[in-house]
Design a protein around this nucleic acid. Structure first.
Lengths: 260, 260
DNA sequence: CAGTGGTCTAGACCACGCT
DNA sequence: GCGTGGTCTAGACCACTGC
């Protein structure tokens, strides 16, 4: 990086090529830097909650200006992958922190403050992936997965009935016993034990009628309307790592969404 | 803006004070610039779909560098208030454009492509604001508002039953006849006729049982589960301008949401 | 070709958090 | 006081659009 912008194309070629004659694949320098930092995150060079190197350090390491690193980090921060703190540095985002606790829990009480629900595990075992779950997880039907059925209650009122599936291949060594013993947020467990972070998710939301099992567990009449939320969560590289099917009782709570 | 950063504090003082001894109220220059551009948008100096002045022009007008204007516009673009187009300029966002058509319509079909539904107005008239609606619109109970009940169908299948309320005070001259005659997206009508743009909205989502009227209109059995979506829409200055209560039939459609 | 937004640099100073 | 991210500037060149 001697002067102006001319070396940029050199940098570009260096970082983007690798395989001779392939498609153009040009991208701005800061996007390449972003990708490099992303690799560091994905490879657990810096773990959740930890400090990543300062902008100056990264600029020196990658041979670009601080401004270019800054723009790369700006995007990572916008995607909630890192958190900037003035005077301290830039940290890898973590599900263990209080303020990211509710990022994936959109159910709010009609009155009072949101808080994390009590958690009762009804069932947890290793099963073979059903076809529909396998498809969403991009694994093969019949592959080993961990299945869990749990109930979440607010102030003693059963509110969320939740089935979830986790591919055994990703969470090697995750034991059913460990899951049965754990009471906190699932994403925190997966992050601390496996370094697998849920970064984003898509949800399909419907209204459905409670079947007998759901009704009995949630203590509502059969055929009561329930909010059905089907979620697929992704980690780095848009890799699907969890399927979750939840049924929310929305009598005293509502699913909150912001459109913009 | 002669040199370095020193004039910034002067600029700061100029733009942020006004009322003598009040609280610090300091803010970065680019935030002040953003606010100035926002005023131009709000005052319809540039209308939806129109080009705003170039970064260079704005920089000259406000006496700051292009980079500062750029950062201000970056934020406005991130909030979907303006759209940048390389080589052309920066445009005021508009609900009339194809790509912002589905920004507020989150219902997707299980199969096939999303498209805009057919629209049947069942009822439209001027009424006195009920207490709950008035509270959400931050107006007084009993104030005049326009009420509308409409049905939206996909491929002939009734899918969305929707009540909406618009304060008469904001949409002066909006006639019931005009609304009855109009078939397209409501937000486009309000934008073209009144220059009032919906910028963001909050939604409260629940599962409810169809009452007799809803069931009959939506052609589903009474007590069928329906997705209830209660929306409050806001324009510039976080001013509430619409309350909308919708009931979605989620048999062949689902409400799509992305978490990140 | 001129004009627009997009990228990149280098260097300055500010605000904050720690020690 | 020093190191961090945050703001601001000035100036260069690139990529795209339309005349």
């Amino acid at each position: 990086m001697s002067s102006a912008h001319s070396p940029s194309s050199g940098q570009n070629a260096t970082a983007a090529s690798g395989s001779g004659v392939s498609s153009p694949t040009f991208s701005p320098l800061y996007q390449q830097i972003k990708r490099l930092i992303l690799q560091g995150l994905q490879s657990n060079e810096w773990r959740p909650g930890e400090l990543i190197p300062s902008e100056m350090e990264l600029a020196a390491r990658f041979g670009v200006s601080q401004g270019t690193v800054r723009k790369a980090i700006d995007e990572l921060a916008a995607e909630n992958l890192v958190v900037r703190r003035q005077g301290k540095g830039t940290f890898v985002a973590s599900h263990l922190e209080a303020r990211s606790q509710f990022r994936f829990l959109r159910l709010k009480p009609d009155v009072g403050e949101a808080h994390y629900p009590d958690n009762t595990i009804i069932e947890a075992r290793r099963v073979r992936a059903p076809a529909d779950v396998a498809r969403q997880l991009e694994i093969k039907t019949g592959d080993s997965i961990i299945f869990m059925l749990r109930m979440q209650s607010f102030d003693g009122a059963p509110t969320i009935l939740e089935e979830l599936w986790l591919p055994s291949a990703i969470f090697k060594g995750l034991s059913v016993e460990r899951m049965l013993a754990y009471k906190g947020p699932m994403y925190a467990l997966l992050e601390t034990e496996f370094g697998t972070q849920m970064l984003r998710a898509t949800e399909s939301i419907r209204a459905v009628a409670a079947d007998e099992r759901s009704a009995s567990l949630l203590k509502v009449p059969v055929h009561s309307p329930l909010l059905s939320v089907q979620r697929v969560s992704y980690t780095y590289g848009d890799k699907a790592v969890e399927v979750r099917r939840s049924f929310y009782v929305t009598n005293d709570h509502y699913y909150h969404n912001e459109l913009s």
